[in-house]
């Protein structure tokens, strides 16, 4: 592999890992909280919220991306406020790719976290409360440790979804080499421009990366 190809491969790989890691950390935290709320709490418009967060799983990624432009584009609802306040436009940055990755992987994490919390016997939480512990301590010491396998599965799925995200990212972050062109976008560009050798490297690396993460998770979840 020549130095040029190494550099050409490294840029989208680094960007994909950076975007997916940041998105996965945020998704793991927020998705676990929402999954817990959906499993254990009754609150206003719970079913409506559940339906809205599920939407990115069924909508074409381009539609999700279009909504993100309407919200975060330079003239979007939120994007305009951010731009007027800070002079920084979210769209067409690596942060936009992270936002797109977050939005498409969030439903996977929230749904998996909900199922993981559902699987924990709620009587154990009651036993913890009866021993005088508060709700947050009960969640941290009882619920989450008992739900960890499901939560880990959700985190891995979210990471894998983030690494593979294409449509919404292309819509909101565009295809700027070295800046917003993640692995899937770089593969698309290489194929479109007939650079099959580069596309081959990118596809193999992406496949090995995804497979390694999933395999490591399977081994880890079997260890306990």
């Amino acid at each position: 592999m020549t130095t040029t190809i190494l550099e050409t491969v490294w840029q989208p790989l680094r960007l994909s890992i950076q975007v997916s890691l940041i998105s996965t950390i945020l998704v793991a935290l927020t998705g676990t909280v929402l999954g817990y709320m959906l499993s254990r709490k009754d609150f206003f418009a719970k079913d409506v919220i559940d339906a809205i967060i599920t939407l990115p799983m069924v909508l074409p990624p381009t539609v999700t991306g279009y909504y993100l432009i309407l919200i975060l584009g330079r003239h979007g609802l939120l994007g305009k406020i951010i731009y007027n306040w800070t002079g920084w436009a979210v769209a067409f940055t690596w942060q936009a790719a992270a936002v797109a990755s977050f939005v498409v992987s969030f439903p996977l994490m929230a749904k998996t976290a909900r199922a993981a919390v559902d699987s924990v016997n709620s009587e154990l939480e009651k036993a913890s409360l009866l021993l005088g512990k508060g709700e947050i301590e009960t969640v941290l010491k009882v619920t989450l440790p008992l739900a960890w396998r499901g939560l880990l599965a959700g985190i891995v799925l979210s990471f894998a979804r983030g690494i593979g995200e294409f449509g919404a990212t292309l819509m909101l972050a565009g295809n700027i080499p070295g800046k917003t062109a993640t692995m899937p976008i770089a593969i698309y560009s290489a194929t479109q421009s007939g650079e099959y050798s580069l596309a081959n490297y990118l596809v193999i690396i992406l496949t090995i990366l995804s497979l390694s993460v999933i395999y490591a998770t399977i081994r880890l979840s079997k260890r306990d």
Binding site: N121, E123, L124, K126, A127, S128, V142, P145, L146
Partner: peptide
């Protein structure tokens, strides 16, 4: 409780 409810972890 009837079902013991010890923390299994």
């Amino acid at each position: 409780f009837q079902q013991f409810n010890l923390f299994p972890h």
